[in-house]
């Protein structure tokens, strides 16, 4: 060993080099996977977005026709609108999960039980959940309307009415995501140093003030993470739409953008147009995320 080290003094040791190579080999596996299964398809769809392509024959270049078509396509705009409309579930979900986390953070009996209860939807298959909620939303004998009936409210036919289908989907998505956000908040709450609260209460801060000035800022990284991932995830909402309203809902009122892209690509043989829409969607998500990171950087702070 020592001879090796001496001999290769100007260069790095053989051991070092070898380990370096092995490390590269390990990195290569995900890297090749990324290049092959993510970057290549991505670049190809950029190319495809400038073509007329039906997915069966070779793509034919048609310039920016797809992008012009998109601008004049009322269903594209409607699907975009629907997708972003359904994101109003995100702040609602955050507030609810924060409240739940605060509740479960207290020392009381049965917290493990409740954590499990709220986490079950997260680990359940989205397809199964969508079917379950489809039944629950049934206008005639669904669970939701039966419960409303107890209070003397005549519930709507949730999924068949253009005014209620989006709220129905929002409620479901919020319910599904609640457990996940709650768990992250719970972890964040438990890592807030106790002494901050002690110091604050010595200074005479009330519960609200403590929450407002200690808890909220301390869990801000988690909030940021949740907002970013929820927006990215929310723009790609698809499975529940496709299962619960297979035709995009009454008057196209629940069609999400990914659902529309999928339909154009695989049902209507407009693979090129669908690629163009995906590119636009990707850019929108990218821009929103960049803005969020910028805003977050401005709000950063540290405790010393």
């Amino acid at each position: 060993m020592s001879t090796t080290v001496l001999r290769s003094k100007p260069r790095r040791s053989r051991l070092h080099r070898r380990e370096h190579q092995v490390a590269l080999a390990f990195i290569a596996i995900p890297l090749i996977g990324f290049l092959l299964f993510t970057l290549y398809p991505l670049l190809y769809s950029v190319y495809a977005s400038f073509t007329s392509w039906n997915g069966l024959a070779a793509p034919k270049f048609n310039g920016i026709d797809n992008y012009i078509k998109m601008w004049n396509d009322p269903y594209f705009l409607k699907a975009m609108w629907n997708t972003f409309y359904m994101m109003i579930g995100i702040p609602i979900g955050l507030v609810l999960s924060m409240a739940l986390a605060l509740g479960l953070n207290r020392k009381m009996r049965g917290t493990t039980f409740f954590r499990t209860v709220y986490y079950v939807p997260v680990i359940s298959s989205i397809a199964a959940i969508a079917i379950l909620w489809q039944w629950a939303y049934n206008g005639d004998f669904g669970l939701v309307n039966q419960v409303l009936d107890i209070f003397g409210i005549q519930g709507p036919n949730w999924l068949a009415d253009k005014d209620t289908v989006k709220p129905a989907l929002i409620i479901m998505a919020t319910w599904k995501g609640l457990g996940y956000s709650m768990l992250l908040y719970l972890a964040a709450l438990q890592s807030v140093p106790r002494y901050l609260y002690e110091a604050a209460s010595l200074d005479g801060a009330g519960t609200w003030q403590q929450f407002r000035n200690i808890t909220l800022p301390m869990v801000r990284p988690v909030t940021f993470f949740l907002v970013v991932t929820s927006i990215i995830g929310g723009s790609q909402i698809f499975i529940e739409i496709n299962i619960m309203t297979p035709l995009g809902g009454p008057e196209f009122s629940s069609a999400s953008i990914v659902w529309y892209i999928w339909r154009q690509a695989f049902n209507n043989l407009h693979m090129g147009y669908a690629s163009a829409m995906s590119i636009v969607l990707g850019l929108i998500i990218f821009v929103i995320t960049v803005i969020q990171f910028r805003l977050n950087r401005r709000n950063q702070f540290s405790i010393d």
Partner: peptide, 10 residues
């Protein structure tokens, strides 16, 4: 069965 109920499921 009631209006707006053309859903096959019912």
């Amino acid at each position: 069965p009631s209006t707006a109920q053309a859903q096959t499921l019912d």
